[in-house]
């Protein structure tokens, strides 16, 4: 026992390796391994006649993905929704995160953190179905608008092509509202953590050098909080790209990437196409991260 202890003390690399081995094995097989297995499937193709998977490397599945205009519509629709949701989450999260991180103290601060996380303690499905009822034609939102005499305005919005639909619960607008609601905590928390790390003296230094509060916000606080904003937006962006439940329960009939993956690997039995579809979000997020890095989002890390 003592000899082993001595050996580990003198060879810290071995010690570290032994400690990390179990979690790395778990992570490597369960997470990365299955992901790679899935991605490899996308290089197989399905035989049209027998409906069986041909286990030979081919790009035919990707060709099928890109050559179908309907598929590209799905990708575009999902991407646009993810961008809109991310921007909306960032705008709503900023003031809340800023207040939590830089002004709230003690109990108020704890209360805010609990309030932000509280919705995440409830089942995801329960929340989605609740939103369907809230957004429905006979739902509370329509009822409120009706009583405020704004029913006409709401109807006008719903008539907007591309956004509206017969009711909020079956429109892209409604889907957007539910997405923003669902992913907002994932934006607030990393943003608040980043804002919390901005030293007060930097904000004071900017003011001391003559910067107005708006200049300080734009030139000092925002660049320093960018890593948090980037982290939060990766969450909201990727969660929207991959989700298949919200588009299923709430929203317009148009398909989203997640729904396609679900359908292709399930009822259609076309695992290669499902795999190819799930590569799309990975590529989009990689592009997004590369862009963010280019713009200097991680310079302050």
């Amino acid at each position: 026992m003592r000899a082993l202890g001595g050996l580990l003390y003198r060879r810290p690399g071995l010690n570290l390796f032994l400690l990390l081995l179990p979690p790395l094995l778990w992570f490597g097989t369960v997470y990365l391994g299955s992901l790679i297995a899935l991605l490899l499937q996308s290089f197989y193709a399905i035989d049209e006649f027998t409906a069986t998977i041909v286990r030979k490397p081919t790009l035919a599945t990707y060709a099928a993905l890109f050559n179908q205009p309907a598929n590209m519509d799905i990708v575009r629709r999902t991407l646009f929704m993810a961008i809109a949701v991310t921007i909306a989450c960032a705008i709503i999260a900023w003031p809340i995160a800023y207040y939590m991180a830089r002004h709230a103290r003690g109990r108020t601060k704890a209360l805010f953190y609990v309030a932000v996380m509280l919705p995440m303690w409830t089942s995801y499905l329960v929340k989605v179905y609740a939103w369907r009822l809230i957004l429905a034609k006979q739902g509370i939102l329509f009822w409120i608008f009706d009583h405020l005499g704004l029913a006409g305005a709401l109807d006008a919005v719903l008539e907007t092509p591309g956004v509206g639909g017969p009711s909020l619960s079956s429109s892209y607008l409604g889907m957007f509202i539910v997405f923003v609601y669902m992913w907002l905590p994932f934006m607030i928390l990393p943003l608040a953590a980043a804002l919390e790390r901005v030293p007060t003296s930097l904000i004071q230094a900017a003011a001391d050098l003559g910067a107005t509060p708006a200049q300080t916000l734009r030139q000092v606080v925002l660049p320093l909080a960018l890593p948090g904003l980037a982290a939060g937006s990766v969450f909201t962006f990727s969660l929207t790209l991959g989700d298949y439940i919200i588009p299923n329960v709430v929203g317009a009939p148009g398909y989203f990437i997640g729904m396609m993956v679900y359908q292709q690997q399930g009822t259609a039995g076309n695992i290669p196409l499902a795999a190819a579809f799930s590569v799309v979000p990975i590529v989009l997020i990689s592009v997004y991260l590369a862009l963010a890095k280019r713009l200097g989002a991680f310079d302050a890390l």
């Binding site: 030293p199 003296s201 930097l202 004071q204 230094a205 900017a206 003011a207 001391d208 050098l209 003559g210 910067a211 107005t212 509060p213 000092v220 660049p223 320093l224 200097g296 310079d299 302050a300």
Partner: peptide, 20 residues
């Protein structure tokens, strides 16, 4: 008068240089 409108400048204890 807020600090940004005062004609004084400060050298901070932790220097407070903008890292970015």
């Amino acid at each position: 008068v807020p600090p940004n409108e005062r004609d004084v400048n400060t050298v901070f204890q932790d220097y407070a240089l903008f890292p970015h």
